[in-house]
């Protein structure tokens, strides 16, 4: 599927900027008698406005100036990307429930399945790496990593 990147991006950011602008009054409540230009609203306001303006420029470039960049989005690639995102999410959940080492080993297995990598040496190297990373953080640099049974 060929996607007109400027047109799509333009629409996305006009909508995104507009939604944020509409939400501003409920999401940024300024108390007291503070001028708008000195308030916490001013930078988000300009940033959101700039998003809308740039989005409009992209649409004008695409529709009127015929300055467009086509992006090929292939379903297979998207399938792989979504699978990878799923693996990342499962890995994060595994770390949450089982700690870094077990979660990491689970991640290695999932990635081996994803790449159809049956090379046991690779899996072994990566397993050692999980343990190495754990000890590097916790023992050498004294930075804690989640342990088994330690749901935060």
């Amino acid at each position: 599927m060929r996607v007109r990147s400027n047109l799509v991006s333009g629409i996305i950011f006009i909508v995104f900027g507009a939604v944020l602008l509409l939400l501003m009054d409920s999401q940024i409540i300024v108390y007291g008698d503070v001028k708008f230009i000195e308030s916490a609203k001013v930078i988000p306001f300009f940033v959101e406005l700039l998003m809308i303006v740039c989005g409009a420029i992209l649409i004008i470039q695409s529709l009127f100036l015929k300055k467009e960049k086509y992006v090929e989005i292939c379903w297979d690639e998207q399938k792989y990307a979504l699978t990878m995102i799923g693996i990342f999410a499962v890995f994060a959940a595994l770390i949450y429930f089982t700690g870094f080492i077990i979660g990491g080993i689970g991640f290695i297995v999932m990635m081996a399945l994803f790449f159809k990598n049956r090379n046991l040496v690779h899996i072994l190297i990566l397993t050692v790496m999980v343990i190495f990373i754990y000890f590097l953080f916790t023992q050498v640099f004294h930075i804690s990593l989640p342990r088994f049974g330690e749901v935060r």
Binding site: Y96, F100, F107, M111, N117, H122, L126, R152
Partner: peptide, 29 residues
Amino acid sequence: KILGVAIALFCFAGAFANSGSIYEMLLIV
């Protein structure tokens, strides 16, 4: 196949190490 997994492991460990918060680790996804 090795490198990508190793980098991802560092990413998750690093995100957690920032403040010891699972939330920050989940946020990177």
